[in-house]
Simulated scan of single mutants.
Amino acid sequence: MTTGQAGGALATAPAAAAVRRRITVRGVVQGVGFRPFVHTLATELGLTGHVTNTGDGVVAEVEGAPAALARFGARLGAEAPPLAVVEAVDGEDLAVAGDTGFRILPSRADGPSRTLVSPDAATCDACLAELTDPADRRYRHPFLTCTHCGPRFTIVTAVPYDRALTTMGRFPMCARCAREYADPADRRFHAQPIACHDCGPRLRLLTADPADRTRPPRPATGPDPVAETRRLLADGAIVAVKGLGGYHLVCDASDDTAVTTLRRRKSRGDKPFALMARQLTDVEHLVRLRDEERALLTGPVRP
């Protein structure tokens, strides 16, 4: 701000000196896109520094104008990613370091591990749109995921949550996935389970010999395991689908013979089986749905 006096020179008020703080965020803040969120927020506010995952949560060191740091702290919990649960935010003042830019640092495993990892989250609408778009490079990619959805807790082998400490660690990213992973403007920025048809896991269908149950299952020869599995289900087969948390035994619920066979093999008697459906309209005529149940069946906690 400048002021003038008659016959005098203009005076300029000095800018506020930069300050630096270390901020530790605890709760469900790993595997939910919290580091990319911090990176974007700090960059928007003109702050410098870095952020990393630790065994204690997410730790950020931010430096800049006091007013910008105050806005950063206020927005940190209020605008956190949808899957995040912020339980505590602690800060301490540090000496100014004079950083240029804001970086996401490699995770640190020092100290005791007390942080939480997000549960697995249902595929988001953006990923579902890619899944069904023939022009998208992840069209029908069965392991579709981004920062806002996909496997989390089930694939973790240790914390802090980083790709190398998940079951995706043995699948190196291809060049295109690596570019998305490194792009702050991409929703897969630092998405640890990122993959595509070129670099991710692949589906495989193993079939048993009905005439000789003692023989181990063999890989099916067809080019599309999903299409072949659908054909088998339509023919009354029972399929063991290996998912994130174990195996699901699947059959056509409208096929009485298949359901009876599954009940006999599992000794389930009259105990209900779980039903799977694509959308709410497929089950509205079977059950009574309240608003709370509709929210669960369409939200991120759905199977």
Rank of each mutant, 00 (worst) to 15 (best):
145 T>K: 00
137 R>Y: 13
50 H>W: 15
132 T>E: 13
147 T>H: 09
71 R>E: 15
48 T>F: 02
99 D>P: 10
69 L>M: 13
126 A>C: 05
49 G>D: 10
97 A>D: 13
57 G>C: 05
131 L>D: 12
141 H>M: 04
54 T>I: 01
90 D>F: 00
67 A>Y: 08
48 T>G: 12
106 P>G: 04
150 G>T: 06
151 P>N: 04
132 T>Q: 10
83 L>V: 09
81 P>Y: 06
150 G>V: 04
64 G>S: 06
154 T>C: 11
148 H>R: 13
120 D>G: 08
112 P>R: 09
139 Y>L: 00
88 A>Q: 14
45 L>Q: 09
114 R>I: 10
61 E>R: 00
75 R>S: 13
49 G>S: 07
109 A>R: 10
116 L>W: 10
81 P>G: 03
154 T>E: 14
146 C>M: 03
104 I>C: 15
70 A>N: 11
110 D>K: 05
117 V>M: 07
115 T>F: 00
87 E>L: 07
152 R>D: 08
49 G>C: 05
70 A>T: 15
117 V>G: 06
135 A>G: 14
70 A>M: 04
60 A>Q: 09
71 R>I: 08
70 A>W: 13
94 L>I: 01
73 G>C: 13
138 R>G: 01
68 A>F: 03
125 D>L: 11
44 E>P: 06
135 A>R: 12
94 L>R: 14
85 V>W: 09
76 L>F: 01
115 T>E: 12
143 F>A: 04
49 G>N: 08
97 A>L: 12
122 A>N: 08
124 C>L: 00
50 H>L: 05
100 T>A: 15
130 E>M: 05
88 A>R: 14
50 H>F: 09
59 V>M: 01
119 P>N: 12
151 P>E: 09
120 D>P: 06
68 A>P: 06
149 C>P: 04
98 G>R: 08
75 R>E: 15
149 C>T: 04
144 L>C: 01
146 C>A: 02
154 T>F: 06
95 A>V: 15
119 P>Q: 12
129 A>E: 14
124 C>P: 02
